[in-house]
């Protein structure tokens, strides 16, 4: 993650769980590694949900959630029991229920179809390839969906609500397309 942003030439990339550091950021990326419950628990235990709320919701600092980081934006997830998320984008995270020929998890490169290009997809083609790896997917109102992809059903691939962005795929693992998306996000800082 950090390797990818640094490759774009940004030198002030800080990996941190310190509230003071987060409060000073111009943009925030919330990567998600692991299970939803574990991530949500860690956020709350370190009181990061409060500081993120202050910075992102009140001050309007742009934030990009990746994979579980995007799912955390939902009201709740059904991964390993029902667990509450941040609730910033109304919606639920549920397990895939797909016909037998579709393997779960959804792993691999899939074509993403952006609904609108502004901000995140501004310098990408109409159906760029991105790398996905997830068993649970985000279900939310159509007005918050920024892009989707096909995997047995129309899967929400990216969401946006004002200055809050989320992508289900992994831009840091999607070669040049991922770098372009990061560049677009960081270029949008200050304009959204």
């Amino acid at each position: 993650m950090r390797n990818a942003i640094s490759a774009l030439g940004y030198c002030k990339v800080v990996l941190s769980c310190e509230p003071q550091v987060i409060a000073q950021a111009n943009a925030i990326i919330l990567p998600g590694v692991g299970a939803f419950a574990e991530c949500a628990h860690n956020l709350r235990e370190r009181h990061l949900d409060e500081i993120l709320g202050e910075v992102v919701l009140k001050r309007g600092t742009p934030m990009l959630g990746i994979c579980v980081g995007m799912q955390l934006l939902a009201d709740f997830s059904e991964e390993g029991g029902r667990h509450a998320g941040l609730g910033w984008i109304p919606g639920a995270v549920r397990r895939f229920e797909l016909p037998k020929e579709y393997a779960v998890p959804h792993v691999g490169w899939n074509e993403v179809r952006p609904m609108r290009r502004e901000h995140l997809f501004s310098n990408l083609s109409e159906s760029p390839n991105f790398y996905f790896d997830h068993s649970y997917h985000f279900q939310c109102a159509p007005e918050h969906v920024l892009a989707h992809c096909e995997y047995g059903l129309s899967v929400v691939a990216a969401v946006q609500r004002n200055n809050i962005f989320g992508v289900q795929f992994h831009p840091e693992k999607s070669q040049n397309n991922g770098l372009k998306l990061f560049r677009a996000f960081l270029n949008a800082v200050g304009s959204c």
Partner: peptide, 8 residues
């Protein structure tokens, strides 16, 4: 799997 997720 519980901590890092099945996909991992």
């Amino acid at each position: 799997a519980n901590v890092l997720g099945n996909q991992c």
